[in-house]
Simulated assay, not measured.
Amino acid sequence: MGSAFEAAGERRSRSRVTDAAPTRDELLRLLGAAGRVADHGSLAPWRVIELRGEARERLGRALAASARRAGRDGDALLGKPLRAPLLLAIVSRRQPSEKVDGWEQDAVASGVAHTMSLLLDEAGWGVMWRTGPYTRTKAVRRMHALAKNERLLGWLYVGGVPDGIREPRRKPVDAGAFLTLLG
């Protein structure tokens, strides 16, 4: 296992994956580590929903129904969740708190998702975080059985890394363009 610096520097999104996927036990091990992100107030304002098999088809139907309600053709969305054998729905679970605003709780859930993507990538799995205009629609909420205090942030699409397909490396970040000194 490499360093966090190496994992972050090597991470890449994998738009194409094979039908292989991590086991539930492997997910639990990785999620146990990902869940250690900074969490003001130790609220644990997140959860992850595992979608495999037919659950992905139900998601496709919910996305398509949402598109149709918006006056768009939903048929193209039916197969989108089938692009990976495993989808991990990232959910922010906002807890009542006088100290920790909702946006900060969403940030914790986002941090878990990003850390999970780093860990999955480092473990040899292909990962891509996907969202879209229908992520927070009623049909998609119902399909995930979200509670009133929960918000779906998107999905990690996870699968095996195909042989011979090279995803382009991301350009290095010009850190100097983003780091400023307050004088």
Rank of each mutant, 00 (worst) to 15 (best):
S117T: 13
M143W: 00
A113Q: 01
R12M: 04
R29S: 10
V108P: 07
V108D: 03
D75A: 15
D101V: 11
M116I: 09
L31A: 10
V100G: 11
R56N: 06
G159Q: 08
A89M: 05
T115Y: 00
R166S: 13
R141P: 06
I165C: 00
A145P: 00
P81N: 03
R58M: 07
A8M: 15
S97F: 08
S42Y: 12
L43V: 09
L87K: 06
T18F: 07
D121Y: 13
A20F: 04
R151H: 11
R69T: 05
L88P: 12
M143A: 14
G102R: 14
A175E: 09
E10Y: 00
R93V: 14
F178V: 03
P96Q: 06
G2P: 15
K80Q: 10
G124C: 07
L43P: 08
H144A: 15
W103G: 02
G183D: 11
H40Q: 07
L153R: 02
L51A: 01
V17R: 14
A107Y: 14
T115K: 01
G9L: 12
G183K: 11
T135C: 08
L31S: 06
G74T: 04
R93C: 13
A70G: 09
L156Q: 02
V158E: 12
L31H: 08
G2D: 13
R169C: 00
T135F: 01
G53I: 01
A8V: 15
A177I: 03
R24D: 13
R169W: 06
S97E: 05
P133V: 10
R83H: 10
G71R: 12
R52K: 15
A177D: 09
K80H: 08
T115V: 05
P162G: 11
G124F: 09
R11M: 02
G71F: 13
R11A: 03
A38C: 06
R69C: 08
E54D: 15
R11E: 04
L28K: 03
A145E: 15
L78K: 04
P162W: 07
E54Y: 03
W155Q: 02
G102P: 10
L153N: 10
T137G: 01
E150P: 05
G111I: 05
A109R: 14
V158A: 07
T135R: 08
R36V: 00
R24M: 04
G126Y: 05
R61A: 13
A67S: 12
R72A: 15
S13V: 02
G154D: 00
S92A: 15
A177Q: 11
S3K: 12
H114Y: 10
P172W: 08
G79S: 14
A65M: 04
L156H: 05
L31W: 05
V48K: 08
M128P: 00
A65G: 02
D101F: 11
R58I: 01
L87F: 14
R69A: 15
G183E: 11
P81V: 04
R12H: 12
R170I: 00
L27R: 03
D121V: 00
A65N: 08
P81W: 06
V140Y: 03
S13G: 04
T180L: 10
D121G: 11
R24H: 09
F178Y: 11
L153T: 09
L146Q: 07
V161W: 05
R130S: 03
W103C: 02
G35S: 10
K148L: 13
A65D: 12
K171H: 05
L59Q: 11
W103Q: 08
R11T: 02
R169V: 14
V48Y: 03
R24F: 03
H40P: 13
A44P: 01
D174Y: 01
W125K: 09
